[in-house]
């Protein structure tokens, strides 16, 4: 029975103009941003004789993909229940010997299949475009993981849409709630996390006044000398810098510690944002060379110091770096599923 409903839902989705428009829009975003990236590449990598990597290219794409994908997923889910209710078809459906959970599960499954098809097509077109513009795909498993993550991400917003649809009185309300939550989790989260971090970690340590004083003194000596330093001035400058180094070392250590805590806290809060989660996961999944650390302890690989090879991590290692983000996405999925399920099952249908 669930399969029959899901098949019917799948058919409905495929035939709906909204799906076609938004899916087309999604594909257009993917293809056009890849082409744009390709064109930018001409000027990008002139100095390093390296071809751009998949992760470089998709990093740029993710910015558009997360926004377009989320709206696409919400658009599939926000009227899943309200549409039936508004069209009075739910009553007709209820007249059939089906359980309510079967209906909601069927709708969910239908949406899931639709999104799967969309991700499949998107994925194929993305791979095709990457190859077409001459980018070497080094690891298909990583790319596959990326698409699965994309699927997971889209499913979070789809179930969110269905959840609001199950609770809202009208489709319009459901869409509005869904968009508000989406914006809250993406746009609003940034300033909020900053404010929270400030209260939790405390303000940035101030520069010690004696350090400031010594810097002033140094500048004064340089300015008065007009470029010709006397021996006494050089002597004084050397003494000053010696004194300064101890104080400033301590100051900079403190600042560094503070920054580590501050940005660490913000990163923890950012886990709440599915969009941020997706970006973080795709970053680690696609790029085998980066390691999860505090943001200030990245091992920075610069091509100029070409002798040292960048570290390379296996896919499972890379995945382990983003365990929290995966858990967050799954948690959202389960949360919205449960909310949708309960909302529909408990709803009064007249």
């Amino acid at each position: 029975m669930i399969l029959a409903i899901s098949e019917k839902e799948f058919k409905d989705y495929l035939t709906s103009r909204r799906f076609l428009i938004l899916f087309g829009f999604l594909l257009a975003v993917v293809v056009l941003s890849l082409i744009q990236v390709k064109l930018q590449m001409q000027s990008w990598n002139v100095d390093s004789s390296e071809a751009p990597k998949v992760y470089d290219v998709l990093q740029g794409l993710n910015f558009y993909l997360t926004a377009a994908g989320a709206i696409f997923a919400i658009s599939l889910g926000f009227d899943a229940v309200t549409k039936e209710r508004e069209g009075k078809t739910l009553n007709v459906l209820m007249g059939h010997p089906v359980f309510r959970d079967q209906i909601i599960l069927g709708k969910m499954l239908g949406g899931a299949i639709t999104i799967a098809v969309a991700v499949l097509i998107t994925g194929l077109i993305m791979i095709g475009t990457l190859l077409g513009i001459g980018i070497t795909i080094e690891s298909y498993p990583r790319l596959l993981t990326y698409f699965l993550t994309l699927y997971l991400y889209l499913m979070v917003f789809f179930t969110m849409g269905v959840a609001f649809s199950a609770h809202a009185k009208s489709s319009g309300n459901a869409l509005m709630y869904a968009l508000v939550v989406y914006l809250a989790l993406t746009v609003l989260l940034m300033p909020v996390s900053g404010i929270l971090a400030h209260y939790v970690v405390g303000p940035q340590p101030e520069k010690p006044p004696e350090l400031k004083e010594m810097e002033e003194r140094m500048r004064a000596i340089y300015e008065s000398s007009n470029g010709n330093l006397t021996d006494e001035q050089i002597q004084e400058l050397m003494e000053l810098s010696e004194k300064m180094s101890a104080i400033s070392d301590e100051y900079y250590n403190k600042t560094h510690e503070w920054m580590r805590e501050y940005w660490g806290f913000i990163e923890k809060i950012q886990v709440v944002s599915p969009e941020q989660d997706f970006r973080t996961i795709s970053n680690y999944v696609l790029n085998p060379h980066i390691k999860k650390e505090n943001p200030f302890d990245y091992e920075v690989y610069t091509p100029e110091y070409g002798t040292f090879e960048p570290p390379e991590y296996s896919l499972s290692e890379s995945l382990s770096f983003v365990r929290n983000e995966f858990i967050a996405l799954f948690a959202y999925l389960v949360l919205w599923f449960v909310v949708a399920y309960l909302g529909f099952v408990r709803a009064e249908i007249r």
């Binding site: 098809v117 097509i121 194929l124």
Partner: peptide, 17 residues
């Protein structure tokens, strides 16, 4: 080769759709 494979995959995807 890469380009043709890419175009083929895109074509395939559109056919599936």
């Amino acid at each position: 080769g890469g380009t043709y494979v890419g175009l083929g995959i895109i074509l395939g995807a559109l056919i599936v759709l």
